[in-house]
Simulated assay, not measured.
Amino acid sequence: MALRIDHAVVSGTFSLDGETHEVDNNLWVVGDDDECVVIDAPHDVDAILEAVGGRTVKAILLTHAHDDHCRVAPALRDAVRAPILLHPDDRPLWELTHTDELWDVDLEDGQSIKVAGASLKVLHTPGHAPGAVCVYVHDLDCVFTGDTLFSGGPGATGRSFSDADVIRASIRSALFRLPPETVVHTGHGPSTTIGEEQAGLDSDG
């Protein structure tokens, strides 16, 4: 059965540093007709379950632990009986939202996660958050960047636990090594390509 991406947009709030904002999050599901991996757990378990469509969820893979990406992860874990995967450097952010429970499996740079005959490669890309990761899927010629890279440039670094120099270094060292035609599926907003974003970042110096 063919490997595919399912996509939905889920709306809710993002809160950090005493501010709360309305946000629309991209939800990405990678798999075939039988099994899948859910990338991020934004806002609404029912919306995620609709995108899953009754398939076996192998993992709930979090790109980082800002609340709009992880708030419903424990409830989703209970609903689908799948482990939550998060890079341990994001524990301080995770604990801002979930004080009494942890994720299940630590992510690490270079790790491979298998689903539907494909390999999802974890790339540690700190900057937007200390434990931020991107997920490269060679078989689909795409990378899921969470809030590390958007159409138009790097993710935000103006809040706690973020660093502008670090995110740019992460993007250059981890993402710009991918083929320029690689499609970038982001945590918010439209998709783009590595080549397009590399040209924009290079022109900014």
Rank of each mutant, 00 (worst) to 15 (best):
G187C: 12
H7D: 06
L49P: 00
N26R: 10
K58P: 01
S170T: 12
P179L: 08
E22G: 13
S119C: 11
A129L: 11
T157H: 03
L201T: 10
L140C: 00
G12Q: 14
D17N: 14
G54E: 05
P74H: 11
T148L: 07
D33L: 08
F150A: 14
T148I: 15
R177K: 14
V9W: 03
C36V: 13
V72R: 05
D109H: 09
P180L: 00
Q198I: 01
V115K: 07
D78L: 14
H138I: 01
A129D: 14
V9F: 02
F176K: 04
A51E: 02
D100H: 11
G131V: 05
I167N: 12
R71E: 07
A75V: 08
S191P: 03
L86W: 09
K121P: 03
A51T: 10
E101C: 08
L120T: 05
C134L: 05
T182N: 03
H124V: 13
A75G: 08
D90A: 08
G127F: 09
L201K: 06
A129Q: 08
I48E: 02
V166T: 12
H188C: 14
T13L: 11
D104E: 12
L76Q: 12
I167T: 13
S119V: 07
S203P: 00
K114V: 00
E101T: 12
G117H: 09
R177L: 08
A41C: 15
T13D: 11
T56M: 10
H138S: 12
S112G: 09
I39S: 09
T13G: 03
F144W: 08
S151M: 12
I39C: 13
G31H: 02
A51N: 00
P180A: 00
T99Q: 15
G31W: 02
T20V: 15
V137H: 01
G155Q: 11
D32L: 07
G54V: 03
E95P: 01
A118S: 03
L149F: 04
E35N: 09
A118K: 02
R4I: 03
G200P: 00
S162N: 04
C36H: 04
L86K: 13
Y136W: 15
T182K: 02
G205H: 07
G18H: 10
S191F: 05
S15E: 15
L49D: 02
D104P: 13
H7K: 14
S170F: 01
H69I: 01
D17P: 12
V105T: 15
S173T: 14
V57F: 05
A174P: 02
V52A: 05
A79M: 06
P126H: 09
L49H: 01
Q198G: 06
A73H: 08
D147S: 11
P190R: 00
S119A: 15
A47F: 01
R159C: 01
H69V: 02
S203I: 00
A129Y: 04
G189R: 04
S170W: 04
H66F: 08
L86V: 12
Q198T: 04
P154C: 10
L201F: 05
T63N: 08
I167V: 15
D44I: 02
H138M: 07
V183S: 03
P130T: 04
R71L: 10
V133S: 05
E35K: 07
T157E: 03
